[in-house]
Amino acid sequence: MSDLPIRYNSEEINGWQVLQLWGRLDRTTAEEAADEGEKQLAACRKLALDLSGLSYVSSAGLRTILKLASGAEQAGKSIVIISSEGMVREILEMARLDLFITIHDSVDDLKNV
């Protein structure tokens, strides 16, 4: 499960367009994920990247997330990350991504935003 290529699913939850990712977000899948994210972002005003399904995020993956965040910021749109406890959350925290982009524990948190 952890090594499967990245997969996506998107649905609207609590007024947010939620893009769910599964698998690994690393150098090999980063570009694909970026494309998908940009596509979703272009079609909505509020995008939530649900990384709960990811088994790993590499520095390239972080870069993709930062890139999306930057794009949203420039377009005046909102973007958040949803990431539950685990390795990915640890990586995100280790890189202090929370300093650039809001990270929620679960989609339920979106109600309060």
């Binding site: 972080l62 930062l66 925290e93 280790m94 890189a95 202090r96 991504l97 300093l99 650039f100």
Partner: peptide
Amino acid sequence: NAGHNPPLLCRRDRAEYLPKAQNPILGVR
């Protein structure tokens, strides 16, 4: 520590990770 993996401190037969980074990664903002 700017978003880097926390190093290990080895002291008296034991190695412990330093706390997680407090600072953001460099070059973003």
